[in-house]
């Protein structure tokens, strides 16, 4: 496994160069800003922050070009995305009811002997639903990969070879946040984990989410509805045993102990970590070092700062 550096949002508090130096990275970076979609190339600030040591891998633009050259690939990809969207919508329906049941049980007063097991079962049902959803999404990806073999198709293979050449000149890879499904989609399409090999990866915000085993979408105060936290799909799994929550102060009700407890228990044994501005965590094959700005959601509902190493 490569060394992975997970960072909080970088727009206002730039800790990237400091964290990279701490991890011993001194050379050039190849960057992935595909989560910014059509603004992928607007990376001047990032370039300046790192002393002009970056080159953009342009995964978003390369994919668009590959789709243009290979309409069959584009069509199959579009169909897969529609299938994934529908699958997410179906999962969301079941999840909404399961979450409502859990909330109702959590607020109910009854004989603990009866109630505790019902609550535990309700949570187990959500965990099972999450797990099954991940499986079904993986099946859709597997079918697409088997049928299309996208990286073997000339339109994409050409770009992938160019990315490989860029990576040969880079010591480490940066992955910015943005639109997580789009980012993950491009990373998967190019076989990012294989391309990166043992090069260190610095990823922030949505990029950090994509590096974990499970990408979890969350917002406790959405403009509509309750804001049921949902699983999107498996991440790249370059960091194991973590679920990360960037912008947690803005997106989570951290003072709501019941919701925090349920989040922590739902994703256990993985650790749920908030990633605020300035936060950093270096993972060297499971051995971790971190600074301020990280907090752990406890199964007791408390949000406790992670002791800096």
């Amino acid at each position: 496994m490569p060394t992975v550096i997970l960072l909080g949002p970088q727009r206002f508090t730039r800790t990237l160069s400091e964290a990279a130096a701490r991890a011993g990275i001194a050379g050039r970076f190849a960057s992935v800003t595909a989560g910014w979609q059509e603004r992928e190339a607007e990376d001047l600030e990032l370039h300046e922050h790192l002393g002009e040591r970056t080159g953009n891998l342009s995964l978003y633009a390369r994919t668009e070009d590959a789709f243009e050259r290979d309409p069959a690939l584009a069509r199959a990809h579009r169909e897969r995305q529609e299938k994934l969207r529908e699958l997410q919508a179906l999962y969301r329906i079941r999840l909404g009811h399961a979450q409502a049941a859990l909330r109702e049980l959590a607020g109910r007063e009854s004989d603990p002997e009866l109630l505790d097991e019902e609550r535990t079962s309700a949570l187990a049902a959500i965990r099972a639903l999450d797990a099954r959803h991940l499986e079904r999404v993986a099946e859709v990806h597997h079918r697409f990969e088997s049928a299309l073999r996208p990286r073997a198709r000339p339109a994409l293979a050409r770009h992938r070879a160019a990315v490989e050449r860029q990576l040969e000149r880079s010591e480490a890879v940066l992955v910015a946040g943005g639109h997580v499904p789009v980012l993950l989609n491009r990373l998967r399409l190019f076989g990012f984990a294989e391309l990166v090999g043992q090069r260190p990866v610095c990823a922030w915000s949505g990029g950090a989410m994509a590096m974990t085993e499970r990408v979890v979408l969350f917002h406790h105060s959405p403009p509509q509805g309750y804001g049921n936290t949902e699983v999107l799909e498996a991440g790249l799994g370059l960091v194991r045993g973590l679920v990360v929550f960037p912008h947690a102060r803005r997106r989570l009700l951290l003072d709501d102990a019941r919701r925090m407890e349920l989040l922590a228990r739902r994703f256990a044994p993985a650790e749920c970590l908030t990633l605020e501005d300035g936060a950093w965590l270096i993972d060297r094959d499971g051995t971790r070092e971190s600074g301020p700005g990280l907090a752990r959601l406890g199964t007791d509902g408390r949000v406790a700062p992670l002791a800096a190493a």
Binding site: P9, G35, G178, V182, S205, M209, L217, P223, Q224, P246
Partner: peptide
């Protein structure tokens, strides 16, 4: 306005983590 505009013209907040 938040409730109305976000229902009529929803943005991708659920998916974006910058």
């Amino acid at each position: 306005l938040r409730e109305g505009l976000s229902w009529l013209f929803p943005g991708p907040f659920w998916f974006i983590y910058e």
